[in-house]
Structure formats: C-alpha cells, structure tokens
Design a protein around this nucleic acid. Structure first.
Length: 596
DNA sequence: GAATATTCAGGATG
DNA sequence: CCATCCTGAATATT
C-alpha cells in the first residue's frame, strides 16, 4: 500500500528527542529523557538496596541522533501517550531492584521495571502475558551472563529465574483455566516448561497432564506432547496421546498404567466435552552458528490450540498396558506456522518467489522476496550492507581493548568497561538487555572476531525474507523461530547530517530510500517484536551509532518482524510546518491508530 | 575428535 | 514419601 520511495518527501523531525525501544517493552527509555553515560546506565550489578531512591535521569545532554525509519512507512501510531502516562518504563531507569537470592557472597541484582502494568485493567491480557515472558527471559539472560562471567554456576537457569520472578509484585500463581488462556495465542513459543506454568498454559513443571476439578469431576485442562512417550502426531488435526505412568517412561518394573490422576482426568474429558489445550514440544532445534561455541540443546514448546478428546482405550501386553487417547483439534483455530513452514520446506518451488536474493549475495545468506498477493516487485534500490557515511566525514578511530583472553575479564576489557563493566551479550549471541548505547569490540581491538562482544557486527545470521503483506506493503519475516535477544539486522542506509556542516551537526538520520538493506522493509508496530539498539564498534562517533535490531521476545516462524518507529504525534511536519498525519495499520490491540 | 545419543542425578510441585 | 512427556552435565557411541 505504502510505497517506500514515494514517501521520500520532506519529513522533518521537529522533536530532538530520541526514542528507542527497550528490550523489555515498548517503553520509555533513557533516550526519551536524555542520555545517561553508558557507564552509569548499567545497572547490572548495582548493590542490593531496595530502598534506593529512584535515580532521576539527567535532563538532557548531547542529543545524538534521531532514528529515521524507512521513508516507506506503512502503518502506525505512537506509544507516546503511554509514555506520558508513565505506563511503561525501561530497565535502565528507576526499576525496583530485586536481589537474587544467591547463597554465595556475591549477590546479583536484577533491576526490574516498576510493576504498574500488572493488575492494571487497562492493560489487556496479551500485554500482560508478553510482559511476564519478557521479564522471565530477561532474568534468564542476566543469570546466563553471570554464569558466563563465572560469578556463579546455576544448574537450572529456568528454576533460578522463576524464583526471582516470584518476588516480583504482580506475579501470582496461575489459576486453573479451562479452554484458551487469555493473552496466549495459538503459535506462541516457549523455551522452558516453567514458562508454560508462568502464563497458566500448563501449570505443572514435569507432568504431561494438567488437570482441575470442575463440578466435582477431575478433568484435564492441558497436555504437553514432547516426545516422552511414543505419541502419534498424525498429519494435521489429530493426535494420539499416551497416558501417564507405567513402564513407558523407562521404569525398571513393568507396570500397567492406572486409570487415575491425569489419565482419569483425560478420559473424563470425553464425557464432559471439555476442550484441552495442547502444547507441542520439539527438541534439539538448536542451530549452531558458525564459529560459535558448542550449541546447547534447545527445546521449544508451541501452543497448538484446543482439542477435544474423542476416544480412550488401553493398549499393550498385560503387565505393561498403557492408555491411549485420541484428540481432535477444534476447527476454526489458526493453522500452526510450523506446519506451513514444513510444507514450504518440503515443496521444491517456493510459491510467490519474486527474487531469490535481493541482496545479490552481499549478505552472508540470501534474502528472498515472496509475494503471494499480487504481481508487484519491490521498487528497485541499491542494496548495501553497511551504512554509508557522508563523504566529508572521517570516522574517528575507536579505542579498542587489548584483551587476548576473549574479553572474559569484564573489569579489564576496555570495551566491557565502556559498557558499564559487562559484556552485554550472552555467549549465544543474544543481547542481555537494552542499553542507551553499546560498545562492541572493533577493528582496533586485539580480540578475535569470535569475541562475544561482537554480536551484531558480523551481519545477518537469521534467514530473513521480504514478503508482501496485506495492508502495509512489504514486510520482513523468517521461516525460522527466533529467540528473544537474537540479533536480526542493521538499519543500513545513507547517513546524513540534519544541519549544514558536519562539525556543528547535532543530529543525524539514516535515509534508506535510495539504498539500504533488509532493514528498510521492516514495518512499524505499536506492539513490536523487535527493538532498535544503538551500537558503536567501527568508530567512536556517538552522533551516529549503528542502529541494530534485536528480537524483543520469542518470535514464531512467519510472524512479521516489526519495531516501533517512535514518532510522536505532531512530530512530522511538511515544508510549511503543517502537521502531517499518517494512519497506523499495525492492528495490534494497543494501537493508537496514528503513526504520526 | 567432534557431533550426537543415552544415562544419571538433582529438583519443584502436588 | 511419591511420581512426573524437565534440564543440564556426565558418559557412551558414531
């Protein structure tokens, strides 16, 4: 609908505010209020002190740069009002610090955002769920970071993280829910069983069948099928599930499964016609990145939707009988993206393929263009992978570190020190949390390219594709699942100064109308799944940091990638200073229907 | 030897 | 005390 290159007119940003998304939420970041020095912005290991008065952000110092979204702006609105109402806040700011109960001398402190959103009626269930999950994932990344710095060894990060989360105001034990859980949508992905429990999808940690008593009878409310038993996940909408207990789990003694507990509950569902939530677990989807350390086995749990139990019988030889259940998926629910991806991968020809690699091999992996809506092709542009700086501009050489130990000692690595004494990435490449500015190691550092403090400078690693959306023109998505914190891509384009001379210039913008990379196709959303992070690595000019997109949550395959353009209403004017209005079409629940 | 499969042990919840 | 469609680390196997 909107065409990028048509919108190349005079967008003028009258506000000098710079707003960038926090990893936690569409939030009010330090940028909004002026910048803190990156060193003081880090809260990763502040001493524990709950009564610490909230830090007042500095009014404003040097305003670096405005993020100019692609001039092709599809749809949008602004989160501005919410920011004004203080509904959101960012990790870097005045959160309530919660100390981890680390039974060793070294205490870890995770700063959590204020808990206003919880229990607030105005926040819909979906936002709550997403916030809780983001919070949990943030804690996990923090713990992982601590583990990697060898401050401490947690066996089970998931269990450790839930302990922290429990201390957070707004966390409560989930009630038993029959049917869909408000805020959870078919296709949602999780990485730990604990996460299923947090959102109330499946409350027990290990058991496969969660049940509740309704009207005096025990009925099943959710099941997890993750390969522990030989279930049959036949084709599409049917599932044969194996009961719990007996020998199947690898017991020493053969034993018949008993019709009690979960087994009975599941059988009762036939009579009561109770819908059962099905969560599908997949194992070993880990994809070892090139040059990365050993890839951990990663399990993914996908919410498959509601099923009804239609049949129940016993199977097997006497002495090792098991219960089997036949479940049918209730019609009218969205198809799992996973299945579509499977079909797509199976089929030889890709439907709607308009271009096998729009980057013309400039990226490490091809980025194809898919259009199953009409015949349109993207408007031609020059594909570049790196930002192009103004001709007159000579980049300041960065001051690197001289680490030879892989920058492992974050108190000695000069780059880590600039990041407030931490390497802001986990060893798997995920960003730990949003910061005003991140310093990656660069060309003048002595560390090798495999250093963990170089997460976003090696280009795109996740297979992305450009596709035609219904309403918003072109968009970007992936056939793979993306886990929270993953680096997606840079926003590349022509860097230009907003004032006459380079020297006096206060603001810079990136214009991707004529040349750019995939980043120029990423649409706006009021509840985005990516966020933009400022990063410096190949130069030290804070006025024009790289703008790097990271996943703010787990993103299922085929879901469109979006970030918040961060316009404010009234911000954009035409040549004559007249306010311009653009409708937001992002369609999210908290959309305010105006991009600017 | 490294990548993968199997087993073991520790653990939270009900 | 019991058991569980978990996890991560330790062994075993290709």
């Amino acid at each position: 609908m909107t065409n990028q290159s048509e919108e190349t007119d005079d967008l003028t940003l009258i506000s000098d505010k710079l707003i960038v998304q926090a990893l936690m939420a569409p939030d009010k970041c330090p940028w909004t209020k002026g910048r803190k020095s990156s060193a003081s912005a880090s809260n990763s290991r502040t001493p524990r002190n709950k009564s610490l008065p909230p830090k007042k952000p500095k009014k404003k110092d040097a305003t670096p740069r405005k993020v100019l979204p692609p001039k092709v702006t599809p749809s949008t609105s602004a989160v501005h009002e919410k920011i004004e109402h203080g509904e959101y806040s960012c990790l870097e700011d005045d959160g309530n610090p919660i100390a981890l109960a680390v039974p060793e001398r070294k205490e870890l402190c995770v700063t959590l955002p204020p808990c206003a959103p919880f229990g607030d009626q105005s926040v819909d269930a979906r936002s709550k769920v997403r916030k809780l999950l983001k919070l949990f994932q943030l804690i996990c990344r923090k713990l992982m970071q601590a583990e990697e710095q060898q401050l401490r060894n947690f066996g089970r990060i998931d269990l450790e993280a839930i302990e922290v989360l429990k201390k957070y105001d707004g966390y409560s034990k989930p009630d038993a829910i029959v049917g869909d859980v408000p805020g959870v949508v078919v296709g949602d992905e999780f990485h730990f069983r604990v996460e299923l429990s947090i959102v109330g999808l499946h409350r027990i940690y290990q058991g496969g069948i969660d049940s509740a008593i309704v009207d005096g009878t025990r009925i099943a409310i959710s099941i997890v099928a993750s390969g522990g038993y030989p279930d049959e996940l036949s084709s599409s909408d049917e599932l044969i599930y194996t009961g719990s207990g007996g020998k199947a789990t690898g017991k020493k003694d053969a034993e018949d499964q008993k019709l009690k507990g979960g087994n009975l509950a599941l059988k009762n569902c036939i009579k009561t016609k109770t819908p059962v939530r099905v969560i599908h677990g997949f194992k070993g989807q880990s994809r070892s990145e090139v040059g990365q350390s050993k890839s951990k086995q990663i399990s993914t749990y996908t919410y498959d939707g509601l099923y009804v139990v239609v049949d129940c019988w016993q199977e097997g030889a006497s002495g090792s009988m098991v219960f089997k259940y036949k479940l049918k998926r209730i019609l009218g629910q969205p198809e799992l993206a996973l299945h579509i991806v499977k079909e797509t991968r199976m089929s030889k020809v890709r439907k709607g393929l308009r271009c096998p690699d729009i980057s013309l091999e400039k990226e490490r992996i091809p980025i194809c263009v898919i259009n199953t809506i009409d015949d349109a092709q993207p408007t031609p542009f020059e594909y570049i992978t790196k930002v192009i700086y103004p001709p007159s501009y000579a980049k300041e050489p960065p001051q690197g570190c001289d680490c030879t130990d892989g920058c492992s000692d974050s108190s000695r690595c000069a780059c880590a020190v600039k990041n407030g004494g931490e390497i802001p990435f986990n060893f798997n490449g995920a960003i730990v949390h949003a910061k005003p500015l991140i310093y990656e190691c660069g060309p003048s550092c002595r560390c090798p390219p495999t250093c963990h403090n170089r997460a976003s400078q090696h280009g795109i690693k996740i297979p992305l594709e450009i596709f035609k959306t219904g309403e918003t023109g072109w968009g970007v998505r992936s056939l793979s699942s993306i886990s929270s914190g993953s680096f997606i891509c840079e926003y590349a384009g022509l860097e230009s100064s907003t004032s006459e001379t380079m020297e006096e210039s206060v603001g810079f913008t990136i214009d991707a109308a004529k040349c750019g990379n995939v980043g120029r196709f990423i649409n706006h959303s009021c509840s985005p799944n990516l966020y933009a992070q400022n990063v410096l690595w190949d130069h030290d000019d804070k006025r024009m940091p790289h703008i790097m997109f990271f996943a703010a949550e787990n993103i299922p395959p085929l879901q469109e990638l979006t970030y918040h353009y961060n316009y404010t209403i009234g911000q954009v004017r035409d040549k004559n200073g007249v306010e311009k209005v653009k409708e937001c079409l992002c369609g999210s629940a908290d959309c305010c229907h105006r991009l600017y």
